[in-house]
Write a protein that binds this DNA or RNA. Structure first.
Lengths: 212, 212
DNA sequence: CGCGCAATCTACCGAACGGTCGGATGGGCC
DNA sequence: GGCCCATCCGACCGTTCGGTAGATTGCGCG
């Protein structure tokens, strides 16, 4: 009997696992369900990955590897640091829209979800270093002054991630009606708007503290 | 034998459960651990709460109830809608700093974590309606124009939540060194800065799309 | 005291889960 | 055909987890 489905079983397992880990969390996903969705017996998972934890790491590796490539490509391009930030934010939105489950996994991980003895991927560490260098550049600090570049970048990233993954749950009426593309468009415009407003005009610190 | 510890066992269970659900997620928390931390036998949990799911709901109820009170108080105060948003953001920061685990639970829930047959608390629904009304007010739309008020509020909330819960994990070197109070102060200033910059100055939509 | 009642304990259960074992299947290759 | 090897399967194992049953303790009160 032809083993059902095309022969990229390993890849299909990875994809199903990504979906499962994203939607159910690490301890919430049952290997049984992954196998079911792939259309394979649970034991077959252990043929490709030695344990649940290894499968999880493989999923993360895959994502981190892709992300590293993209980020590297953006950072190697010509342009001022602030433009690289702009580009980075755009690819960030792309990633979140294209791979929502992957984003969920990342968010979950930042909340503390992970197998007991887990440590970050090499790829993700390298990527983080690249971005950190950019964020720490004097040139960027000058463009943003007096805004803290780190807070700026992390805040906008968080905003994007939160929007797409949590928005539909918090306010389904707002997101549910329209197709993903138009939501994406609206969000991207908003984030850009906020970003550009931060980029010019001077400090409002006095005004802010007056409100306190 | 005097049952060990002070007699507010129920409350202590709730607190331990909040910590556990926040840090481990719903399917990640073990009732055994909660009992252990309270200093009580696992079976005792079932004396106060009929099931894991009920315990989870009780934790959420507690949080939602407190939050509703605070939000109601803010919304009933005098002032323009935009000032209420400012105040709301400030209490939001307060909540996130004071009850980090509660925030994590909320974030997890928006990612899809929850017992199988779960539906939102009445309190949280009421609170959401109150805020939704405010966000939908014409007056606020005018203050923010052309920024979408909904995107504005949701985005800033997401930014705050992401900062405190995920920031320390994504970049421990940035957060770990200083005490919570100073981190809080820095974040609050940043969020206020971003907010105030959004509040004045006109649209940068043209500039933004030029970047695309 | 002695009764009731709430709270807590010890001990256990059934189900589900991660993981293992040994065998079946079937295609490629000589 | 005959062999190999990757792939996949059905059945099973040990542990853990949520949940239950029943006994025990100790306090309040007539």
């Amino acid at each position: 009997m032809r083993p059902q489905g095309p022969r990229n079983t390993r890849q299909r397992i990875l994809e199903a696992a990504e979906t499962a880990f994203g939607n159910e969390g690490y301890s919430g996903t049952r290997l049984h369900h992954i196998a079911e969705r792939v259309g394979v017996q649970k034991a077959s998972l252990f043929h490709y990955f030695t344990s649940k934890e290894h499968l999880y790491c493989a999923v993360l590796d895959e994502g981190a590897g892709q992300a590293e490539e993209i980020v590297k490509h953006v950072l190697e391009s010509e342009g001022e640091p602030i433009d690289k930030i702009r580009a980075l934010l755009r690819v960030c939105i792309d990633m979140v829209v294209t791979y929502p489950e992957r984003t969920k996994i990342q968010l979950r991980q930042s909340l503390g979800d992970a197998p007991p003895g887990f440590q970050p991927t090499d790829a993700s560490e390298r990527m983080l270093c690249l971005v950190a260098d950019l964020v720490a550049s004097d040139e960027l600090a000058k463009s943003l002054s007096p805004i803290d570049p780190f807070a700026f970048v992390l805040g906008l990233m968080g905003m994007v991630a939160f929007f797409f993954t949590s928005g539909p749950v918090v306010a389904p009426s707002w997101f549910g009606q329209q197709d993903a593309a138009s939501v994406r468009d609206r969000i991207e415009r908003h984030v850009n708007e906020v970003m550009e407003r931060c980029l010019d005009g001077q400090s409002h610190a006095a005004k802010s503290s007056a409100v306190l």
